[in-house]
Each structure stands twice: as structure tokens, then as C-alpha cells.
């Protein structure tokens, strides 16, 4: 606990470009950018695959491969290949890792919708696209949100590791602390990242409450 007091009690940690607020903003910035790009790729693609049933094998393979890919290795390799010093190359592996959970859950969500429901929607005269947006998507929303949540948490975690290849963000406290054996910084950084991850988790649970239709929630 002394370490925590050392870290959070130090006024120097609260201002300037390597203070907690600046690092937190950086972390949020990178994470949000990577997450948004990933969501913009994965949600439409997952909906397309889930609705048409085409390319399902690709999704399964991508999901398994992504789980096996070591984050740190991918980061180091991409950054070395692209050249050190810019932010963009770091975002690439973040996006690569963020896409599969969204893709898989969107796909699974749409696939998992009761076939009777789908048929009923067609029977009521809805067209393909209307069925997708008005029937399938609302019913699949809990799973889609789960995918987004898993992905967001993954991005926040990986952005921490990205401090190793020179990215800013909260990971800096951990990585720099490890390098200089300043354990108060390591622990302080760890606590901050943990709090951020939990806040993301909580935020998505809250979002789930707000956007999922009450009817869908009841039948779960």
C-alpha cells in the first residue's frame, strides 16, 4: 500500500506530458481510435456474413488464429517493419486483435436468431435488408455488444503492452517502472489500467441496459 501512496501522492505524477491525466488521455485516444476502426470493419462484415451465411469458415479460422497470435510479438514485429517513432504502426496490431471478437460475436449473434423469427419477419413482408436491421440486429444486439466489449477490453490491455514499443499511455508507468525498478510506478500504473479496464467493462454493461430492447432482455 506504501507504493500506492508513493505513486498517487506524488504531485509530479499529476501534471505535465508524463503525468497521469496526460497518459490517461493518450491511452484513451489510441484505444478509441483502434477500437472504432475495428468496429467499423467488423460489425458490417459480421452482419453481412451472418445474414448471408457466406464466409463463415473465414470467421472461425480468423477467430482461432487471433487468439493464438501473441500480442507482444505482433506489436514488436509490425513496429520494427514499419519503423519506430510513429503512432500509426502501433495501431495496426491493435486493430488486428480487436476485429475478431467483434466479427465472431456479430456473426454468431445473427446466426443464433431463431429461424421462426426470421421466417415470421419475411412472412410479414419485410425485405432482406429490413429483416436484417429491424429484426435480426435488435435480437442479436446482446451478443454484438458482448463482442464489442471483449474487443474494447482487449484493446485497452494491448495498448498497455504497446508502451514497450514506445507508445505513450498508461503502460508507460508499468514499462518504465520495470526498467528502472521503480515498483511504486509499476503498481500505480497497474492499478490505473485495471481501473480503466473495469470502467470500460462497466460502461458496456450500462450500454447494454440502455440499447437492448426490453423484450429481448426478458427472453434471455
Amino acid at each position: 500500500m506504501n507504493w500506492l501512496a508513493d505513486f498517487f501522492g506524488d504531485a509530479a505524477h499529476w501534471s505535465g506530458p508524463d503525468g497521469i491525466p496526460a497518459r490517461l488521455l493518450e491511452h484513451l485516444g489510441y484505444s478509441a481510435a483502434a477500437f472504432l476502426v475495428a468496429a467499423l470493419i467488423a460489425v458490417p462484415l459480421g452482419m453481412l456474413i451472418g445474414h448471408t451465411g457466406r464466409g463463415a469458415l473465414l470467421v472461425v479460422v480468423a477467430a482461432n488464429a487471433a487468439r493464438a497470435l501473441p500480442t507482444l510479438g505482433l506489436l514488436v514485429l509490425v513496429v520494427l517493419l514499419a519503423g519506430v517513432g510513429t503512432v500509426l504502426p502501433v495501431l495496426v496490431p491493435l486493430i488486428v486483435l480487436a476485429v475478431p471478437p467483434i466479427l465472431v460475436n456479430t456473426y454468431e449473434g445473427l446466426r443464433g436468431v431463431d429461424a421462426d423469427l426470421r421466417d415470421a419477419a419475411y412472412g410479414m413482408g419485410l425485405r432482406g435488408r429490413q429483416v436484417l436491421f429491424r429484426t435480426l440486429t435488435p435480437v442479436a444486439l446482446p451478443l454484438i455488444l458482448l463482442g464489442l466489449r471483449l474487443s474494447a477490453i482487449q484493446v485497452v490491455s494491448t495498448a498497455t503492452v504497446a508502451a514497450f514499443v514506445g507508445l505513450g499511455g498508461l503502460g508507460r508507468f508499468i514499462i518504465d517502472g520495470l526498467a528502472t525498478k521503480a515498483y511504486s510506478s509499476v503498481i500505480g500504473g497497474a492499478v490505473l489500467v485495471a481501473a480503466l479496464a473495469l470502467a470500460v467493462q462497466f460502461g458496456f454493461l450500462l450500454l447494454d441496459r440502455v440499447v437492448v430492447s426490453p423484450g429481448v432482455r426478458q427472453t434471455r
Binding site: T160, I174, V193, A197, V200
Partner: peptide, 12 residues
């Protein structure tokens, strides 16, 4: 939801 590096650091 906790990043692995966070848990490693804490257990360190």
C-alpha cells in the same frame, strides 16, 4: 477484464 501485464505487475 484485467490486462495480463497488470496482474503480472501486481504479483511481481
Amino acid at each position: 477484464s484485467l490486462p495480463s501485464l497488470v496482474l503480472f505487475s501486481i504479483f511481481l
